[in-house]
């Protein structure tokens, strides 16, 4: 089962077949329907996102309607049906961060990345999201890139923070 996806940069990417999630469902979750959320998490971490074909595959595998699977995927903001970037930026907009200028960070990132919340940059490097409190209220305004937390971020610092991740890409290219 091969799936071709058109990436934001217009190139076509072949998603590998679903054998990995297939065997995971069999061995680890024993095909249990009540493990749907765990299975979706596993699938998203393997494939990066949950396209319709993958959701249908999981629905067939667990013998549940795909409308139930898509209901769960569309309910939780952590699940994404869009291809995600290499890194995920999450700006905290919990109460403390909001008051201390989280909104300014969001505005700045929207301009500098040229994307809206929930989207992925054209080069596939960043997915930009907001978070509802990451539990770092004392460090407000805070943001996360992947698993790294950045504290007391000022808009002026953003570019240098992002540059670190852009450099990585450069290194990879070389």
């Amino acid at each position: 089962m091969k799936v071709v996806e058109t990436r934001p940069d217009g190139k076509e990417a072949v998603l590998t077949d679903f054998s990995e999630i297939n065997s995971l469902i069999d061995t680890y979750y024993a095909g249990r329907r009540d493990c749907l959320i765990n299975i979706l998490h596993a699938a998203q971490s393997i494939y990066g996102f949950l396209p319709a074909e993958l959701q249908r595959f999981i629905a067939d595998k667990l013998d549940i309607p795909v409308s139930e699977v898509s209901g769960v995927v569309s309910f939780y903001s952590f699940f994404s049906m869009k291809r995600r970037g290499k890194h995920t930026i999450r700006v905290c907009l919990g109460t403390a961060c909001y008051v201390r200028g989280g909104k300014k960070l969001v505005d700045h990132l929207r301009k500098s990345l040229k994307i809206e919340i929930g989207d992925t940059t054209a080069d596939g490097l960043f997915t930009f999201e907001i978070a509802r409190c990451i539990g770092a209220c004392g460090l407000a305004p805070a943001m996360m890139i992947d698993d790294d937390v950045y504290q007391q971020v000022a808009p002026a610092r953003l570019d240098s923070i992002l540059a670190k991740y852009k450099d990585e890409k450069g290194v990879e290219k070389a």
């Binding site: 319709a52 959701q55 249908r56 549940i64 309607p65 795909v66 409308s67 139930e68 699977v69 898509s70 209901g71 569309s74 309910f75 939780y76």
Partner: peptide
Amino acid sequence: GILNPQNRGFKTVIGPS
């Protein structure tokens, strides 16, 4: 199993996948 709740909160609709 065609109709199920999709999305969340105010955006909830009952519909197909």
